[in-house]
Nucleic acid binder design. Structure first.
Lengths: 188, 188
DNA sequence: AGATAACTTGAGGACTTCCTCAAGTTCGCA
DNA sequence: TGCGAACTTGAGGAAGTCCTCAAGTTATCT
């Protein structure tokens, strides 16, 4: 299937950009369920224009958060490149959390599950794959407890994201993730 | 000030009861922002009756969750009576989390802050006071890390509540709360 | 400059939730 | 039994949000 993508007319491109910017701001402040009318207003554009460009809320979310997701991916690769794998793991967590506490929309993008075929989910899968490697590395080096799983990151983010004292909370959680702190976990 | 409280007429009392029951069910399933009309419908009562009995949403929340809060208080006292303070601390967490995962409304009651003069907040303060003692005891016995604070419980609940694997998550977090796992925390 | 496809506009219908209040019903006392 | 106070009812106005579409505007190409 050829997705013939004629370039947008100049004014349309400007409007599209304004909408994405506004969406990032509003979603960031009010969350992903913020009224679309507010985004249109902030972009200085009629609500119809928003719907012309982004037929669904998810399409707008995609456009608004893909860049952040890609930045996040880059951070993950940086962490992967560090000498000390445990250090890399911690750095990655700090970077992810920093992004999320500054942006409620991004937090929700990370927590919510979207259509599996969406760009967002594709990007999240790509990040997940690096995180797997990060975790495996930190475990082989003996820093991270062996029974830690990718899915446990959800708990780490739940514990830290959205709290003003996230560094403290992360400190507490990390002390439980060190290999030498590990006690056997319930069978799940 | 005398709050002359004439007993309700029999039918009114029945309706009140039905409303509180319905509220517990609906709030439990859908959260504290669930439509009040749905609660009235489930109670088999007109929306006007709900407003007659509970002029504000908070009044209904109060009536619906005070019993659970008192149950929670009882659990805290039980935990306080145990021989092993660390064991008591863990039991208390397990009991609280169990209550919360079964009831989304209760989770939100715990997380949200209400009017300081409300019954809910009074009960929460009472529980908080026992939790302080529980924490102090667990610290003196050398089980719980010395730098743990009451406010850190928020992180513990955030990490466990709402997850299907809460026991696993609690296990991970607890490993970070043991005195011998403690690394210095950021200055906050 | 003129034509036309591309784009924008915003009023408006549909829906949801809130809360009120005038009218109707029911309880329980005398 | 009958009366008055207590209680219930549910239609309906207000507000917010969604999404559409017919009419109007504008960019771009020749």
């Amino acid at each position: 299937m050829s997705i013939e993508q004629r370039p947008l007319r100049r004014d349309a491109r400007r409007n599209r950009e304004a909408l994405v910017t506004a969406a990032r701001e509003i979603f960031g402040a009010r969350g992903l369920d913020a009224p679309l009318e507010e985004i249109a207003r902030r972009a200085g554009v009629a609500i119809g224009t928003l719907y012309n460009r982004f037929p669904t809320r998810d399409a707008l979310i995609d456009a608004a958060f893909l860049p952040t997701l890609h930045a996040s991916l880059a951070r993950t690769e940086e962490a992967l490149a560090l000498d000390d794998p445990w250090e890399g793991f911690v750095r990655f967590l700090e970077a992810s959390i920093t992004l999320q506490v500054a942006d409620r929309g991004f937090t929700e993008v990370c927590a919510r599950t979207f259509d599996a075929a969406s760009e967002i989910e594709k990007a999240k899968r790509a990040i997940g794959e690096r995180m797997e490697r990060l975790i495996a590395g930190a475990q082989e080096s003996g820093g991270l407890r062996a029974d830690f799983r990718l899915a446990d990151l959800g708990m780490v983010f739940a514990a830290t994201t959205g709290a003003p004292h996230w560094r403290r909370n992360l400190g507490l959680v990390l002390d439980g993730l060190r290999a030498d702190a590990a006690h056997p976990l319930p069978a799940d």
